[in-house]
């Protein structure tokens, strides 16, 4: 079992999230993280999904996803093939934190910043890898961490040259190159 990041380019359609999610459910694959986002191309959406799986299963899954009518392209990559980030927000009681922690040092050490500072609570934000945001949780917990929330992963495929060209191929029905990454596999 390995961690895979799936990048799925789709049309903007109601219910597509459902359709894609069902493909994981049906195979009893847990979705570790999911993010939907616009892309560099207007009207094209991108799902970023993280799962633990073996290569064979993820390869088959991606083919099935790509088969969905409103999906243009689906890729899967290992951790080393992508640059990825997650963002986390932490809400802590201002009085405790101000009294017991050297806030500035903490922020600096973790690349975090203050988003909101109020009398009753403070909100920090940190962007990074899972271990990093987890680390800050463990540091803040003793000081009465009130709330913690983390986004889904967003990832950029190192080797990708974006979706503009690919879309042209779709428009022209001339998918010559890379017709199916998976066909070659």
């Amino acid at each position: 079992m390995k961690e895979y990041t799936l990048s799925i380019y789709t049309e903007d359609q109601i219910g597509l999230l459902n359709r894609i999610a069902a493909m994981f459910t049906r195979r009893k694959i847990n979705i570790e993280s999911l993010n939907t986002s616009p892309t560099e191309v207007a009207g094209i959406h991108r799902f970023t999904i993280v799962i633990f799986s073996d290569e064979d299963a993820v390869n088959k899954l991606v083919r099935q996803i790509e088969k969905q009518v409103d999906v243009l392209k689906a890729y899967y990559n290992t951790e080393s093939e992508v640059i990825w980030q997650e963002m986390a927000l932490y809400k802590v009681p201002t009085n405790v934190i101000a009294e017991k922690v050297q806030v500035e040092r903490l922020l600096r050490a973790h690349g975090a910043r203050v988003v909101v500072l109020r009398k009753d609570y403070t909100i920090f934000e940190q962007t990074g890898h899972r271990e990093e945001t987890d680390k800050l949780v463990s540091i803040l917990e003793p000081y009465g961490l009130i709330e913690f929330v983390r986004t889904g992963r967003i990832a950029i495929i190192k080797a990708s040259s974006g979706f503009h060209d690919k879309l042209l191929e779709f428009e022209e029905n001339s998918l010559q190159r890379d017709v199916l990454k998976t066909q070659e596999a």
Partner: peptide, 13 residues
């Protein structure tokens, strides 16, 4: 005639 995200048939190689 065509749906851009959908490829009913490939170009045969």
């Amino acid at each position: 005639q065509k749906v851009r995200s959908y490829r009913p048939k490939p170009i045969i190689r």
